[in-house]
Design a protein around this nucleic acid. Sequence first.
DNA 1: GTGAAAGCGCTAACAA
DNA 2: TTGTTAGCGCTTTCAC
Lengths: 338, 338
Amino acid sequence: MPATIYDVAKKAGVSIATVSRVLNKKDNVSEETKQRVMDAIEELNYVPNMIASALMTKKMSTLSLLIPDVINPFFSEIARGVEDAANNYNYNVIVCNTDYDLKKEAVYLNLLKQKSVDGFIVASAIYNDKNVYDLIKQDYPLVLLGREIDGIEKNTRTDVIVSNDICGGYQATKHLIELGHRKIDLILGPKEIKVNRDREKGYRKALRDHGIAVDKNRIHNGRFKIEFGCSKALEILRKKEQPTAIFAGNDIIAIGVLRAAKSLGYDVPGDLSVVGYDNTILAEIADPPLTTINQQMYKMGYMAAEMLIKRLKGDKKPAQRVIFETKLVVRKSTAKPR
Amino acid sequence: MPATIYDVAKKAGVSIATVSRVLNKKDNVSEETKQRVMDAIEELNYVPNMIASALMTKKMSTLSLLIPDVINPFFSEIARGVEDAANNYNYNVIVCNTDYDLKKEAVYLNLLKQKSVDGFIVASAIYNDKNVYDLIKQDYPLVLLGREIDGIEKNTRTDVIVSNDICGGYQATKHLIELGHRKIDLILGPKEIKVNRDREKGYRKALRDHGIAVDKNRIHNGRFKIEFGCSKALEILRKKEQPTAIFAGNDIIAIGVLRAAKSLGYDVPGDLSVVGYDNTILAEIADPPLTTINQQMYKMGYMAAEMLIKRLKGDKKPAQRVIFETKLVVRKSTAKPR
DNA sequence: GTGAAAGCGCTAACAA
DNA sequence: TTGTTAGCGCTTTCAC
């Protein structure tokens, strides 16, 4: 049986209120009794029970992070950022893998609410997510990461952290155009995920700005999986109107494209230029190393946790909307078309 | 203010004890009152407060996972396995990044104990970790993953899940020897991490078994970082007694070796064969794709969580020690020496 | 089958 | 500065 506050009080010859005071670093305790209490705590190896205190205070110093999948390097970097910030403030983080599944997400949220986690960071970017609307409506402390929700009233305290994906899409496409490419296919993840719509917007704008007609048949949606990137690229490269470049919705899809090109005996970037998105470790390691769009995953995660914790500590300023800028990173997977 | 059990009781016209009974699915409640309670719960949108119940039961349905770094694909796969198993049993998992830092680990453990997490999975494999000894001594539910602790008494309930790293080291080295290599350098992670000692043992045994003298100067310890793999490989490849093959302690180091080889204009596997370890996604994507030793990270994580939860649910069988087998995966980074 | 009441280990008025 | 006491929202005997 672990020692309780009563044991400490008895040993120190004070009341439990006094023990509680020194535990919570209230100043109205004399140095002398404080010392006695500290000694008692030491001797008894006393560890305060946070469950008991949370029953009154409702504070568990625990955040929850909802992401589609930790294995995806994009999200594991976010997770690390969140955890580092949380740890910095003595918070812990419960990590949940939603697999882009709204039902799974709902089950998680329900369980987490029961556990009185202090706040939520939702980074599993599904469009029009009813779960998120509910969280907002019920006024749970919440930060949205890499996603937005339309129609949030301005008076919520829900902060939003996003990347400028329209710009990212633009940068990638512009890079290819400036190299001389005109036939550029776009292979994106699911339409339901907003970033894909934005990257497509950027792609379209870049084409328009350079007087190139947008060909709907060159725009493809699917999943953020190597296999999808590979099979879709195979399909595209076997068609008549072959592109000279492919802009992939993320590094994972780009890896799939690379694989497809290799299997068809294409040289990248000689026969085909490929641009990824995210600048995860995968882009660095790929063969050839991928030209890609950098996103600041770690920083975004760190900031999300920090903003959330500040709100938990009473920050009352109106909801923020932070936009992280993207950057083109040129490696070896892009070149002039033959 | 969220509804409490009292509100439900009042609305249903029963006592809180009865509400508690239906909440916990005790059978001694008549169908009729049960229905009334359920209706009240529904109407009030009542969500039970787990903190309150945990104060009595000491069960929070939360595990904690300590790993060095989620960004490392080896550990993110473990984390995913742990989380999937936990989720399957309606548990959540708090993920902590220790960075192989014993002090950081101690701080985490202390905080987690306060939070009454139900059990611990420690996968940050530091040798002779006092924190782990303490956990065991204090009889906390614990599963050790990918590490072992010497001198655990047999009567603890601490399960251990490990990979057969001696065998893995042997398989990798044997593969190189059978290709015809005789000068094989070994670039490992830190000595303090047991897996490195075991992989070295396997390496030594393979050499001995094939009548090749072990040259201590060919064995190097450092960090599980790309930069270390790269700089150490550069150093090695510039020496007189150049190896024809390098066996890296994990895929990350191997990626560094690949980078070094490339920067020196070496062809892999033509001029140098490289073997990695873990078979993470990085091995698949690397250029050339890495020959490596497969470890079953996801399964190990899944099993760790499952064993822990079973113990929490009262499983009293003596501590288990599960060994996962490794497997050589041949890709394109190894070939006969010139 | 159901209810009353005593905790679980703390925090936070309120008194002293 | 310190102590007393009433909760926080549940679970769990023990009666009935």
